[in-house]
Write a protein that binds this DNA or RNA. Structure first.
Length: 132
RNA sequence: CAAGUAAAUCGCCUUAUCGAACCAAACUUGUUUUGGUUAGGAAAGUCCGAACACCGGAGUGCAAACAUAGUGGCUAACAGCCACCAGCCGUGAGGUUAGGAAAAGUGCAACAGAAAGUAUGUACAGGUUAUGCUGUAGUGAAACCAGGUAAACUCUAUGUGGUGCAAUGUCAUGUAUACCAACGUUUGAGCGCGGCACGUGCGAUUGUUGGAGGGUAGGCAGCUAGAAUGUAUUGGUAACAAUGCAUCCAGAUAAAUGAUAAGGGCUUUUUAAUUUUUAAUUAGAAAGUACAGAAUUCGGCUUAUAGAUUUGUUUAAAUA
């Protein structure tokens, strides 16, 4: 997997996003919250990821754009270290739940923590699902 | 010089690494390669005016509601812009104005004043038997004759259908089936023919196929070559118009136009040194580098904006 984040890796389907929020599980490391769900994609992409910032805390479009860009960048550069070993396809939605404008370093560190937590959590759950 | 004043322009740059979207070409037809393009002056507020689309009426008049309001011009249109007149502000350059009508009617009016109008007080004088009456004084912008106010109602003139690209059109996976047709199934309720049975016709139910309808997820069109931009000439005081030449300049949709690092500008503060005091130059340090992100498209208006630049123009008094 390369350090890319193109059209096919973006979570776009409205249907899937609704499903994600109703059925998905979540891990959170401040200031992020990641909702995830196991699915199968028609175009055989391993992961699809979306990014979201609340309009409630950031009223200006410029600020929202900036934060989303930082998040996408952090995802793009760090996903290879965590997700290359995972074979099951997942849909992700990463939410920014803080209320201050972050710096890039801050975003990257938090994102790393978030992914670590995710990789620790997921295998257990899959085992649980199989047993029960 | 300094302080204004009016108008216009710009609004960080370079390099490296890793990326995103769209378009074109190529072939090895791909999550390929190569090339090109990729946010603003306000993209913002959504306040006016249009284009375009659909709905309604499809004609005319009146009324209501809303908007506009000096005169003339510009414009596709406008509540916009330009010129001129008038009032007000400023020494001035200049700024600013909801600048139609008070002899149609209704209302309102601070302070002062007895009273701002279903009034007639006080003092003095005149007059009278006396009162009513007449004059003067005092308040105020205005005292019975009217005036002010229409960013009060109102009147006059002019204009105005509604909803908005989530408009609208089109393709249509899947799902469900009140619809229609054909064929078929059955422990086939019930009904008709018949005295009853068999039989036969209709048929609730159910299956398959086809059609029609509906229009969800999603795709495509609308979707960017235009009242376009730049430039020159001509006409016009100007807004603006005409003509010639050149150019193609974002099209995303959980929403691209980026991230990081290094260096350099610019501004402010501060330290040191030098020079002719104010100040300037050089070197170092610290901080800052705005407002803000297209979403159908144009013309305006309004609001936000670190800092920089250019041009025209004004300066009374005081001080040097």
């Amino acid at each position: 997997m390369d350090k890319t984040y193109n059209k096919h890796e973006k979570l776009k389907s409205k249907k899937l996003i609704d499903q994600l929020f109703t059925e998905g599980k979540s891990v959170s490391v401040y200031p992020f919250r990641m909702v995830y769900l196991e699915t199968i994609f028609e175009d055989h992409v391993p992961f699809k990821t979306g990014v979201s910032v609340s309009k409630k805390y950031f009223k200006k479009a410029v600020d929202r754009n900036r934060i989303k860009r930082l998040m996408r960048e952090a995802y793009r550069l760090n996903k290879t270290t965590y997700f290359n070993n995972i074979t099951t396809p997942y849909a992700f939605m990463i939410l920014y739940i803080g209320n201050t404008k972050p710096t890039y370093n801050h975003v990257e560190q938090s994102m790393n923590k978030l992914f670590k937590k995710f990789t620790n959590v997921t295998p257990k759950q899959t085992i649980d699902e199989k047993t029960t």
